[in-house]
Design a protein around this nucleic acid. Structure first.
Length: 239
DNA sequence: GCGACAG
DNA sequence: ATCTTGTCGC
């Protein structure tokens, strides 16, 4: 697959990840009382590199949706495992910055520090935005974990290298009975343990925590709205 | 060299 | 991520 080489080479991207990783804070540095949290997600088109990014602001702890903001554009980077942030973060950050106010905590789709170079998309976004945040992934990218109990809330540590030693980078967590565990890891300014507590705190009976679930639904909805609108304009000879 | 491999 | 309905299992 090809992409504009005027953006970043993989070597430069990997270097940037290693630099950002040094700025990741794994201690809890977030407000004592949360007021609003945000979920970030992206929706792609079938055979197009068009991406739609959305940021949903939710009240804490009611998880009621307060606001949605979105943006769209052409992806400037292909999907390469380990480099997801270079494809999606520009859009996700733009959507985030369209919200009328700054959330107290971010829920990002993908890994936080559970990444080959310790800097998944959640860490990259949170460090660059200087906001506390958690990486909520649907599968493992880096690290190993044992069996997870069947009850909601059951967890198993995700272990992997960090500064040349094996440590707990995050947790595989059963957010819903019989559903595949979510893979959680700190993005920035939250510990692995607090990440689990906050995600369970923001989960409402579904596998995905509410901020992520709402962002995912909104992203799909908005992409379909925009695609059908674009199709209508084309049939009228516009665009 | 052989697997693993976020969205 | 996206394409997609019903259907098998807890």
């Amino acid at each position: 697959m090809e992409w504009p080489d005027d953006v970043l080479t993989l070597e430069e991207a990997a270097r940037l990840q290693k630099d950002l990783r040094k700025q990741v804070v794994l201690e809890d540095r977030l407000p004592n009382t949360l007021h609003a949290v945000a979920g970030l997600d992206i929706s792609h088109s079938r055979f197009s590199s068009r991406v739609f990014a959305i940021a949903v602001l939710l009240d804490y702890p009611s998880m009621q949706v307060l606001e949605e903001a979105w943006t769209e554009g052409e992806a400037q980077f292909p999907y390469i495992s380990g480099f997801l942030a270079f494809r999606e973060s520009p859009f996700v950050r733009e959507a985030l910055n369209k919200l009328s106010r700054r959330p107290d905590l971010l829920f990002v789709d993908g890994q936080g520090i559970a990444h080959p170079r310790g800097c998944g998309i959640a860490s990259q976004v949170c460090v660059l935005e200087d906001l506390p945040g958690i990486g909520c992934a649907k599968s493992v990218l880096y690290g190993k974990h044992g069996e997870v109990g069947p009850e909601a809330g059951d967890r198993s540590p995700l272990r992997g290298k960090w500064d040349d030693e094996i440590r707990t980078l995050g947790y595989a967590v059963r957010t819903k009975p019989r559903a595949k565990p979510m893979i959680l890891s700190p993005g920035h300014r939250v510990s692995p343990e607090t990440s689990v507590r906050l995600v369970l705190d923001c989960t409402r009976g579904y596998r995905l925590p509410e901020p992520t679930r709402q962002a995912h639904e909104a992203a799909n909805r908005i992409r379909r709205e925009q695609e059908s609108q674009t199709a209508g304009q084309m049939s009228l000879g516009l665009e």
